[in-house]
Nucleic acid binder design. Structure first.
Length: 554
RNA sequence: GGGCUUGUGGCCUAGUCAGGAUAGGGCGUUAGCCUCCUAAGCUAAUGGUCGGGGGUUCAAAUCCCCCCAAGCCCGCCA
């Protein structure tokens, strides 16, 4: 309902003032919506803002005001306050399954996220990418946009050559029960150590990269084998995190099917393209001083060119291309966008997120300095199991295990998604293991609480007579859910949804403590139960979009 | 050295893109609340030169300039 009201009021303000920007914002504690357009008009009208606001409020009120929309001025502001009909309509909408969905839109979206190199397990830095990407994907789906999620798999880079070399030359045994990706990481770390001790190995690595690009079957088979092995481990972690990819795109395919050659062929014709030992692009017209290398002097392709071929393919097959990439890819990202513009292909929207580091410094798979996502998940799950056991000792162990798993993923995902992506963070075990307040479990708990009330209530006839301030505030928060989904998808900012879900849980908890539901009577009881039902559905939708299980009991 | 990003109470963080009503939360600390719908909860108290300095504006955490600090990037790595 909020979205509709916002557009409606924006329209009437525009009509009334003739201004293009009517400075309409959230009214905070003063109103549902507020406009400070009077300040802007003061200059031209040569009247004080408070008088303009009063005049405008009067005029708007006469033309558009009703029992359900109060329009009044407060100093220089024009405040809009919604009435009971708005609340009723909002709640009715919020009771429907899939609430928050927006009208279906056409246009296929492709969203790439995680895409970590298969040379080890995902660590706590990689999964920031995963959580941001998966949450965005879920938001797009709720917003009614057809979407495909892809993982771009680097199966022919230097790292893979190093792992493959390590398997052939170092006898590293798999530890009992060791996961594929963790085993690969040990080989990778050992091979890097070997290279450090004997730089001559680098030539062997270079050779491997050349023959794999030339199409040597044996080497391709070996590369593919280690990549597939590592990917199995990564997929397990992604599944544990509730992150879903529709397709894994193999980088080498773009060489094999000739797309890399084709894109180089197009680039070569550009005046910005230069060929000496290497083939490179001059992107100074885009403010990029750095040369964009497309082909090595030995004739092999570089990551950038293969990525370019991948993006041409995406541009041609989808209407909107979104990449979630680490801040270390900012330069290469802007080069990619510039290069695509030069050949007239649609560039991607790139969501960058800043780095996650450890208290002792930045993470490095090569040096074995990282906290793996698997270790994080198992530690948090263990703590969650203890908590569940402490709170619900009567539940069967199997049930407690299930709840603990959901709570753990909730804590991890929420802890990551709640922070805006442009903020670099330091991984903190204490925060990761906190299940209170601004956490996923806190929101799950509010949902479970609503479920519990509704279980005890039994059948009831829906009613919409809300009286207290706590009830109305809660209902008005519920009304904003579709608007939040719309904003997340438009601005590509999933942390807004995390904040919304927390606000909603806060308001519900306050309501829960201030206002009796089951112990109230008649139409009041039925109205409050209706409100609880709407909250439950909205929290459920919020949690699902955040990739968190909406538990009925915990 | 150049580029990008960040800097908000002891700690973490929202708000910054689209400047406006006393800068919101959380953790911590302190004081209350389970004969009452799940205390992973609620109610209060405490605590802020919005990194520093200029400027623009009726109005700046928000826009512009300079400086300081941290992270990232500046590979024929990915």
């Amino acid at each position: 309902m909020y979205l509709e009201k916002l557009h409606e009021i924006e329209g009437m303000l525009k009509a009334c003032t003739g201004e293009d920007d009517v400075h309409l914002t959230d009214g905070g504690e003063h109103a549902d919506l507020a406009s400070s357009v009077a300040f802007r008009l003061a200059k031209n009208l040569k009247k004080p803002p408070h008088q303009i606001a009063a005049d405008l409020a009067m005029e708007l009120s006469e033309n558009y005001g009703s029992d359900d929309l109060s329009i009044e001025s407060a100093g220089p502001y024009i405040n809009f306050i919604f009435g009971p009909e708005y609340v009723r309509a909002s709640l009715m909408a919020a009771l429907k399954a899939g609430y928050g969905a927006l009208p279906a839109r056409s246009g296929r979206v492709v969203l790439e996220h995680t895409s970590a190199n298969p040379n080890g397990p995902l660590h706590v830095g990689h999964i920031r990418n995963t959580v941001i990407g998966d949450t965005l994907a879920r938001a797009f789906r709720r917003a009614g946009m057809p979407l495909e999620v892809q993982y771009y798999l680097n199966d022919m880079g230097r790292q893979i050559a190093i792992v493959s070399w390590g398997f052939d030359h170092l006898s590293i045994e798999r530890s009992p029960g060791e996961k594929d990706d963790h085993y690969i990481a040990r080989v990778y770390i050992a091979a890097n150590a070997a290279i450090r001790d004997d730089p001559g190995i680098t030539a062997e690595i270079n050779h491997l990269m050349q023959v794999v690009e030339a199409g040597d079957d044996e080497t391709i088979r070996k590369f593919r084998q280690v990549v597939e092995m590592c990917l199995e481990g990564i997929k397990t972690t992604l599944t544990d995190l509730n992150a879903v990819h529709d397709r894994f795109v193999w980088e080498s395919d773009f060489i094999r099917i000739g797309d890399v050659s084709r894109v180089i062929g197009r680039m070569i014709r550009l005046p910005e393209c230069h060929e000496n030992e290497t083939l490179w692009l001059d992107l100074t017209e885009f403010g990029i001083e750095k040369e964009y290398i497309l082909r090595r002097s030995d004739g092999t392709s570089v990551y950038a060119t293969r990525d370019l071929a991948y993006h041409v393919w995406k541009a041609r097959n989808y209407d909107l291309v979104i990449d979630v990439l680490g801040a270390d890819h900012k330069l290469i990202g802007s080069q990619l966008i510039a290069a695509l513009k030069l050949i007239g292909e649609k560039p991607p929207e790139i969501v960058h997120f800043e780095f996650v580091s450890l208290p002792e410094g930045s993470m490095s798979t090569r040096q074995g300095k990282f906290v793996s996502a698997d270790d994080l998940i198992s530690e948090v799950t263990r703590k969650a199991f203890d908590e569940v056991t402490r709170r619900r000792p009567e539940l069967a162990e199997e049930e407690r295990t299930g709840i603990a798993r959901s709570v753990a993923i909730s804590a991890i995902r929420y802890d990551i998604v709640k922070v805006s992506p442009e903020k670099s963070t330091v991984f903190d075990w204490k925060e990761a293991l906190d299940f209170e307040r601004q956490s996923g479990p806190y929101i799950q708990y509010a949902h479970a609480r609503a479920c519990s009330i509704l279980r005890k209530a039994g059948e009831f006839e829906e009613a919409y007579e809300l009286m207290t301030g706590d009830e109305v505030r809660l209902a008005k928060c519920i009304a904003r859910f579709p608007y939040v989904i719309d904003t997340v998808v438009k601005d590509l900012r999933p942390h807004l949804l995390a904040g919304y879900a927390r606000d909603l849980a806060d308001l519900f908890n306050t309501f829960y403590h201030q206002v009796p539901v089951l112990k109230s009577e008649g139409v009041t009881r039925r109205s409050r139960l209706t409100l609880v039902k709407a909250v439950r559905n909205t929290l459920k939708g919020s949690l699902e979009t955040l990739g968190i299980d909406a538990l009925g009991s915990m």
